[in-house]
């Protein structure tokens, strides 16, 4: 941070923010025991055990370093969503979001925010560290849109690590923003939207359809992977996969 007035976005002060949400058990029910907002990550309780992310600033923009801590106590339930999609914009260097989630024994977490849109020129890093204890019930959905309408995608490196009682359950890295690689028939082909849902429920068998795969993991879990031309089709495919996996 030099404070010098350089070109456009770089004159803006990059954000450092750490938000947190935690649940606790009181009289046999779930209470949201901690709700710490840090703009642009603002959290609002919208139901007895439902919390929504409300963006209170544009971005993330390049240079921003954001963190979200989620702690779901044993035997409690949390649903975490967002009121709108996230538009990742370019700025001064890469932007970063680190989500650390712990889900206790017998707890339920449903993480289903609106899609992340990678605007042209953005350089975004996402790291999700999900620690699950035995008997927890987790559904974790992530949707990425490769650029706004008609524009090339910005860059993104998204890493997802889920462990169960300390053992690796699912580790995945998505990269986007290299046009030659994005369009590879091994990666996304002609799709503009990529989505995954990690579930601790294990599908009885694999399932494949147009743009959808339901993949039982080696351990207790399922990965639903979907590719689609637009966000509406992507959501429909993911929800179909989630239903099949939870049946």
């Amino acid at each position: 941070m030099t404070g010098l007035l350089t070109a456009g976005a770089s004159a803006r002060r990059a954000m450092r923010a750490r938000a947190a949400v935690a649940t606790a058990r009181a009289d046999g029910r779930t209470v949201v025991s901690r709700l710490a907002s840090a703009p642009p990550l603002t959290l609002r309780q919208t139901g007895p055990h439902t919390v929504h992310l409300v963006s209170t600033a544009a971005g993330p923009l390049g240079g921003d370093r954001l963190a979200l801590d989620v702690d779901v106590a044993p035997g409690t339930t949390l649903e975490l969503g967002s009121v709108a999609s996230t538009l990742v914009l370019p700025g001064d260097g890469p932007s970063e979001l680190v989500v650390t989630a712990r889900v206790g024994a017998g707890a339920t977490l449903r993480f289903a925010p609106e899609p992340t849109v990678l605007a042209t020129g953005c350089d975004h890093r996402v790291a999700v560290r999900l620690t699950v204890e035995a008997g927890a019930n987790v559904s974790w959905r992530e949707e990425i849109v490769l650029g706004r309408h008609g524009e090339p995608s910005g860059r993104c490196l998204a890493r997802f690590d889920a462990t169960l009682d300390g053992l690796p359950l699912l580790r995945q890295e998505f990269t986007a923003g290299d046009p030659a690689l994005d369009s590879s028939p091994a990666l996304y082909g002609t799709a503009r939207c990529i989505g995954t849902t990690f579930l601790t429920a294990r599908a009885a068998e694999p399932y494949v359809a147009e743009g959808l795969a339901v993949l039982p993991l080696s351990g207790p879990g399922t990965l639903v992977t979907a590719l689609a031309a637009d966000a509406v089709e992507l959501r429909a495919r993911l929800e179909q996969g989630e239903r099949l996996a939870s049946r």
């Binding site: 890295e173 998505f174 590879s184 795969a213 992977t225 979907a226």
Partner: peptide
């Protein structure tokens, strides 16, 4: 834990099909 883990969604779809 930090070893790379590159995902190729279309490859997964093709392998299952």
């Amino acid at each position: 834990a930090a070893l790379p883990a590159g995902a190729a969604p279309a490859l997964d779809l093709l392998a299952e099909a």
